[in-house]
Nucleic acid binder design. Structure first.
Lengths: 325, 325
DNA sequence: CTCGACGCATAACACGCCGTTATATGGTGT
DNA sequence: ACACCATATAACGGCGTGTTATGCGTCGAG
């Protein structure tokens, strides 16, 4: 029945003492005020102004509206300001979820970058494996997830989730082979042929990584003998170092938690996991989320972290494989 | 940029958890909500809801709007309620101004009637002679004035004021003649011929009453010898009782402040003053003012006060003139 | 796994609010 | 008395905001 515009007009009339004054104060024409008051009067059913001669005065009801205008309009301004602050990156919150090995360098650097640029954006971080982080995204429990997908195999499986989500590629993470130093292939150069490891004992990582291992070995023509499974890649490397088996291990993990007692080599057929940022189409357009996303992309693209992701294979420098030697 | 309707929608979405729920809660159709949200989003420049699958969730900005909605809308409701109370006679104030001799019976009875019917209407009363009360009306210092005009002569003079004001006739007040008991005409019956008093000493009342005296005497063919002037009709009657002169005195005054030591008789040519309620066209439509006006009219029309005003002369009962005898 | 129900988005359309300019009317002061 | 100033009215245009009809995608159940 009564809206903010009406209150604004009534307040301006009270302050200016005339329709014309109110009109100029609000940037309207005089008839606009005249009609607005008339509409308000026939809505409320009672006169709001007392027109005597060429002067207008507020009636009791009109004065009541003008008096309430301050309360309503300042509350409205507060609401607008809060939204404007969120839109203008002067406020806001981003709930980020990432898998453990991304938490080491990628996420901290991105968080620092966002904090640097927009000190008023508060960022919270949760560690979660891709399946859970995407579930959290869908459940509205986080705004941005750093996840990975193994190129080729379970990308199709993820598409079930990814169709309603938007993804931004961050890094291409080469999958390498970890061998005990005593292994017969530990001292060669170049890539190790996966088929040469058909009879090895295998140590698998997280469930998805295990799935990828099975896929790759299948392509190489054998089924791996998986002796151990653990999500902890420190443990994986420990197991390998102890000579209990070999393991596929992503480059990013090696770079962050490297055990000097294992040998890392490239493997053929080459394989990688794609690390990407995931969010919903709507959240993608939230300025704070967009800023965090861009920071992630920048950090991922910076040469002091890892090779850029979307470039073609030729432009990607060879991974330094001499971790050990 | 943001209006109350938008906040109402956002709050409903927050409470109901879906567009459809919000729509039914607000009595709208579902697309109305959908479009409203879209408009708000493109106005604020940031997503307000996160649509994932067939569920919607508020973003931070949307939640901010929903959170502010309570403040704004309750303030708006308070404003509406206050106006509604004024329109519904559950609140309000009427500032009444009346000339002294109306304050005796007409005004108190009307005030009592209003208080009876609408206990929450506060009425204030100021005593003022017609010129000042009309000035107060024009100056916005009162809402309703009880004034009088002498029929015929200064009605034209008042029209200058009365054109922008609206009047409601209340009473016709016969103008009578007050004589000392010792006067040669004190014992007759019927009306006294004004021309028979051409050589008397005259006592005049308020300035407007004095003007009316001059007009009447002029019509009767003489110019009165005005010996005293006072606005106090108690004094007028005292002067007459002391034999210092004769005076024209309205019936209403005699009825309220009658000095038994004077004789009151009708006079020819007959004359009267019209007592009327005056306000502005706008204030006339303010419910509280209208209620006060109606109360005044009812009191004026009630037979236990004085004869009705607008009736023709035939229907007006003869004034009781035997105040003294 | 398919099907039906549910919820949001979009299209097309109608109405009324709310501005505008042009003009009339009436009060005020020199 | 006349010019100025303030409000009222008329006519008109835009768009905000509702409607119904319809499509599409998702979630749950047989």
């Amino acid at each position: 029945m009564i809206d903010a515009a009406g209150l604004r007009v009534m307040r301006a009339i009270a302050e200016q003492g005339s329709f014309t004054g109110a009109a100029t104060a609000l940037g309207y024409s005089q008839p606009a005020i005249s009609q607005m008051v008339r509409r308000l009067e026939q809505r409320t059913g009672t006169p709001l102004v007392d027109r005597v001669g060429r002067t207008v005065r507020l009636t009791e009801a009109g004065a009541a509206l003008a008096r309430h205008a301050g309360t309503v309009l300042s509350a409205l301004d507060a609401a607008e300001e809060e939204v404007s602050a969120i839109a203008g990156l002067r406020a806001g919150r981003v709930r980020l979820a990432a898998f453990p090995s991304a938490s080491a360098t990628l996420v901290p650097k991105a968080l620092a970058l966002v904090r640097d640029r927009f000190p008023d954006i508060s960022m919270t971080f949760t560690e979660a494996e891709p399946p859970e982080s995407l579930a959290a995204l869908r459940a509205g429990e986080c705004d941005l997830a750093v996840a990975f997908t193994y190129a080729g195999d379970d990308l199709a499986a993820d598409s079930e989730d990814l169709d309603v989500l938007v993804t931004e590629p961050l890094l291409r993470d080469e999958v390498l082979i970890a061998l005990p130093p005593s292994h017969r292939l530990a001292r060669g150069t170049g890539a190790v042929d996966l088929a040469d490891l058909a009879t090895e004992h295998w140590i698998a990582g997280c469930p998805r990584c295990r799935g990828h291992l099975l896929t790759m070995c299948d392509q190489a023509g054998f089924s791996p003998d998986v002796s151990f499974e653990t999500e902890d890649y420190v443990a994986v490397q420990g197991l390998v170092a102890a000579g209990l088996g070999v393991a596929l291990i992503p480059d990013l993990i090696v770079r962050t938690t490297y055990n000097p007692d294992v040998v890392i080599r490239q493997v053929t057929p080459a394989s990688r996991r794609d690390i990407l940022a995931v969010t919903t189409p709507d959240l993608r357009r939230v300025p704070a989320v967009a800023a965090a996303l861009e920071a992630l992309a920048e950090v991922a693209a910076s040469p002091d972290l890892l090779p850029t992701f979307p470039g073609d294979a030729a432009s990607v420098p060879e991974p330094e494989l001499d971790y050990h030697l």
